[in-house]
């Protein structure tokens, strides 16, 4: 009888907990943290994100403040240019939208794919150009980019032409769970140090794989293009543990690469 009551209470607790975590997650998504700031004496730029900036696909929310009267600047057109400064060279990284106007939520939003972490090799700076009524101001914001625990960005040289370097960023699932998960990736190539265009027209194969047991999962949907170099599908996990998301990417029916994202969840 004790066990029964115990189990019932556990079940209730689990439910309670589950409903709580749902709420916490939504709160966290809303709950942006300031990851970097910078100013040029006249205007200040505050960079917000849900986590520390990491190697991979980052959604940045920017607030611009007029320092003279401490008011938000809401009517600007903002342009972004991230730069990695290394010993001998500098390079940029993929950005989905180079310019932005104010979003409904009151921020300027940019999707940036940092391709390497800050560290001994070099440091990141993001240059914002804020244009209001024809006047352009520039603010340089130093940012720190960390290498995430689970790889969110994979780069490879095309297996087909052996020269083009591609970058695949894993956008979803952010916090994978047992069951059905959205899978979204975006793909870019390095055209030059400063030019990292998104790649359209790719086709995908997807195989989730549990290496410790050597099995997959059924009913997955390989990502298909949704525009802007983004590809969306579904990935299914039948249990917790170590999963691989094995992708095969084809361009004009030639395999260009087979990146594997690994995820662990309880």
């Amino acid at each position: 009888m004790k066990k029964y009551i115990y189990t019932l209470s556990v079940v209730t607790l689990v439910f309670f907990f589950m409903s709580c975590t749902d709420k916490i997650e939504t709160l966290v998504e809303e709950n942006l943290v300031e990851v970097a700031t910078g100013d040029n004496g006249e205007i200040a730029v505050e960079v917000q994100a849900t986590t520390d900036l990491f190697v991979g696909f980052n959604s940045l929310k920017i607030e611009v403040t007029n320092l003279t009267d401490n008011t938000s600047i809401n009517d600007a057109t903002v342009t972004i240019m991230p730069m990695m400064h290394m010993m001998t060279m500098s390079h940029s990284c993929p950005v989905d939208n180079k310019t932005a106007t104010l979003s409904e939520k009151g921020t300027y939003n940019f999707d940036v794919v940092f391709v390497m972490p800050s560290g001994d090799m070099g440091y990141w700076e993001v240059t914002f150009k804020v244009e209001v009524g024809g006047q352009i101001q520039e603010v340089i914001v130093p940012v720190t980019v960390v290498q995430p625990e689970e790889t969110k960005l994979i780069s490879f040289v095309s297996e087909f032409d052996q020269t083009t370097k591609y970058f695949v960023a894993l956008i979803d699932p952010k916090s994978p769970q047992v069951g059905e998960n959205d899978l979204e990736v975006s793909v870019y190539k390095k055209a030059s140090m400063m030019d990292w265009p998104s790649v359209e027209g790719l086709s995908f194969e997807l195989e989730p794989w549990m290496t410790s047991m050597d099995h997959g999962s059924p009913n997955n949907i390989a990502p298909v293009a949704i525009g802007n170099g983004h590809y969306k599908g579904k990935v299914n996990f039948t249990m917790t543990g170590d999963w691989e998301m094995r992708l095969t990417i084809k361009e004009n029916s030639n395999v260009i690469g087979t990146p594997v994202f690994t995820t662990v969840f309880q």
Binding site: V178, M210, T211, S212, M213, T238, M239, T240, G241, D242, V264, Q266
Partner: peptide, 12 residues
């Protein structure tokens, strides 16, 4: 719950 020699436990 399955416990592999290498890797995380798997639960279903």
């Amino acid at each position: 719950t399955m416990y592999p020699d290498v890797g995380s436990p798997m639960y279903m």
